[in-house]
Simulated scan of single mutants.
Amino acid sequence: MIPVNEPLLNGNEKKYLNQCIDTGWISSEGPFIKEFEEKMAAKVGRKFGIAVSNGSVAIDAAILALGIGEGDEVIMPTFTIVSCAAAIVRVGAKPVLVDCNPDDWNMNVDEIEAKITDRTKAIMVVHIYGLPVNMNAVIAIAEKHGLKIIEDAAEQHGQLYDGKPIGSFGEISTFSFYPNKHITTGEGGMIMTDDEALAEKCRSLRNLCFIPAKRFIHYDLGFNFRMTNLQAALGLAQLERLDEFIAIKRAMGKKYTSLLKDVKGIQLPLEKNNEAENIYWVYAIVLDDTVGFDAEGAMKKLAEKKIGTRPFFWPMHEQPVFHKMGLFKNETYPVSERVARRGFYLPSGLALRPDDIDVVCDAVRAILK
């Protein structure tokens, strides 16, 4: 079986993990935490990094730190992972959705301004798969209407937009370090900001809102969102190789494209846009409407050939959990609905070998004959 993802863990991961074990620093108090935060923030061009237990709670903390709450609205893409909308809903705010683009699958920024009301507090940007959102347009809208920007950079570690690091935009940004990301800590995430007050609020929220002078007296309710020293050690070793990992991913994407560009019936990811070169977090494809089966059917056929795949995100406005809450009734976003049903991604992990890509592409050709 060629798995959909397999990380590369052949750098300093064992060395740093052994240091944690040898010194006994395995909790969230260990020295690798601060080093990982500082070096990740420097890589992204942010003043502050706050390591947390995963990328989803990074979004939760970001929403809370910005003071978004009951009755507020946040504009976001419908085509994304559920964590983004869940963080908004959990504080009593309302996600307001826009469709995605048909070419890069990022949020359609042309739809944002029409969704702004007097309750809108922020725009949540989510960079999808390999190319970034049109940040210049988002920033212009946010400045015009006095809105905050929350930047979910979970899928694009090391990506640049017009020469500036992804994750460096807006008031606050978030990262995920799940095993399929360019940098992994197994589970883990980070919040980034240039605002010292926001950084301090996020640090407090991740640590049960302890206060130094009277540790077990609480004036606010926080969470245990802490990252362990073990996770940070892993992340630091991964961060050391980020540029190498990006080169591997781009070589992978170019090989896939060269082998699949003449195959009829599929839309391939864009190699670049005006501001960025694709970083290929995953190599995603969308079946043409002329193909007689959908993504689920294609994935079953590829599984029979021992090829691992994963479906595209399912749109927020079609999620049963939100329908039960009375959200998004009668809303439709046709581009997102189509790509969710006809899109999936191929094996894209950093440990994927070039000859594995040959096998995968042969299998794709075979099922589309």
Rank of each mutant, 00 (worst) to 15 (best):
N273C: 08
D262G: 07
L242D: 00
F223D: 07
M190H: 01
K272M: 09
G170M: 06
N180Y: 10
L236D: 02
T174C: 12
N274G: 13
M227V: 03
A197S: 14
I279H: 06
G189R: 04
M227P: 07
A237I: 08
C202S: 12
D194A: 07
I191W: 08
D220E: 15
A251I: 03
T174L: 01
K214C: 00
K272L: 04
H182P: 13
A284I: 05
N180D: 14
K272D: 01
T193K: 08
P165A: 04
S258H: 09
I183M: 05
K214A: 08
Q267Y: 14
Y178T: 11
I166S: 13
A237F: 02
G253H: 10
E240C: 00
L236G: 04
E271D: 01
K201C: 10
G253Q: 08
K214R: 13
R241D: 00
L205K: 08
L259A: 08
V282F: 02
L198E: 06
G188S: 05
I217E: 15
C209N: 12
H182S: 14
T228S: 15
S173T: 03
D262I: 10
A276T: 13
I191G: 03
N180Q: 00
L234Q: 13
K249C: 03
I266H: 06
T193S: 11
R250G: 07
K214P: 00
G265D: 07
A276R: 09
E187S: 14
C209K: 10
K164E: 12
I248M: 11
G222E: 10
Y256R: 04
A197L: 09
S176G: 11
L242R: 04
N224C: 02
S168Y: 08
D262S: 13
L208G: 08
S258K: 09
N229G: 02
G167W: 06
M252Q: 09
L234A: 14
G235F: 01
Y219R: 14
F223S: 04
S168R: 07
E200A: 13
M190A: 11
P179H: 07
H218C: 05
D243N: 07
K181R: 13
I211V: 12
H182N: 10
L268H: 06
R241Y: 07
R215H: 12
E277S: 13
Y283V: 07
I217N: 00
F225H: 11
R250Q: 14
N278H: 11
I266W: 11
P179L: 02
F216M: 12
K254P: 00
K164S: 04
T228L: 09
Y280Q: 01
I246R: 13
D220V: 06
